[in-house]
Design a protein around this nucleic acid. Sequence first.
DNA 1: ATGAGTATACCAACTAGTGAATATACAAGC
DNA 2: GCTTGTATATTCACTAGTTGGTATACTCAT
Lengths: 196, 196
Amino acid sequence: MSEKPNPTRKRLVDAATKLFYAEGIGRVSVDAVAEKAGLTKRTLYYHFKSKDDLIAAYLDGRDQPNLEQMAGWFDAAGGGADKKVEAIFTNLARVARHPKWKGCGFLRTAAELAAMPGHPAVKAGARHKTNFEKWLAGALSDHDVGEAKMLAREIVLLMDGAFSSMLIHHNPDYVTAAGHAAATLVRARMAGKRGA
Amino acid sequence: MSEKPNPTRKRLVDAATKLFYAEGIGRVSVDAVAEKAGLTKRTLYYHFKSKDDLIAAYLDGRDQPNLEQMAGWFDAAGGGADKKVEAIFTNLARVARHPKWKGCGFLRTAAELAAMPGHPAVKAGARHKTNFEKWLAGALSDHDVGEAKMLAREIVLLMDGAFSSMLIHHNPDYVTAAGHAAATLVRARMAGKRGA
DNA sequence: ATGAGTATACCAACTAGTGAATATACAAGC
DNA sequence: GCTTGTATATTCACTAGTTGGTATACTCAT
């Protein structure tokens, strides 16, 4: 059950994370990853059986940190569930202004690998999105919002739409609009509870 | 104003369209495009100054056909504006089941070129998405739906979310759920009109 | 014979992946 | 304390193929 930390492997995944996210997986060579990690390509191939394997490790490594960031934004926000949901989008709009922001790494990888539907990295992306949807449904349910599962899915759709629109337009207004729509959807279910 | 049809150029763009959409722009060489068109690479470089130029031509060529398909689905559907909007998503869910479907070419290209924000192909994608949003706002307004602009943007967000979720999960339920949510949003504005 | 369009042949750079040698760590035998 | 054995970890040098782009020459209608 206990994983060896293996600092060399971690260095490689860290380097891959920075480069793959910044440039896209197809535009980054394994030589570039190895060099960024201060190692040779042959060492990389000792720890990963192929570039595809490294890509999957990159996305697997982003699952938990991403979920924690979303949950952190949700928890830190004041107000009801509607405000907490909207806070996720507000924070997203803020970080998306940074020039280094390049969209959602999971979605971008799925887009690049669209021709390889069974690719382990695409599966890792699907897993992450499912994890996020489940966490959100649970969080909404904990705040006594009705129809939490259906609502969580709608919010996920708005969020992935926000990622995509922001990436193509470079205009945070789309993210803000998605946050507004999401908050409205939450309020409708809160009012439903309240009115009953 | 009048464009020469230039069948050779069209053949190249057609070949590029099929290959770029099916495989992704980074995974298709200009040699492959030329071969698919039954021409040599040198001829390709006579008509396009670079691969980037060809990519932009590919997306520019998809703008009108895509808009017409969406408008066709909207117009052909019976019922009110809510049903017409939902019909777009229903048709999208249907075609997305086809194994050749690989998501939205505009979004996938923006994802692949995220590191090159000023790239002409990304601009072409942004233009297309804006055109769609404007068309939708006009169509909703024509059907006496209130707050058409804000509503159109929310629907666009749901649609891009549907494209992304479908691409990563390969599950049309996400597209159907987005259609439901979109129809509900439209109905809220129709009811608002009706109630006044 | 001129110029738009097409073809052959080529280039230098880069790509994912590998073979063989080497370095390091640690334990066993004596 | 020293040697030897063995598994892990790392490097250098290389392959075989692909990439975007180009120099040059040819074709053919006007």
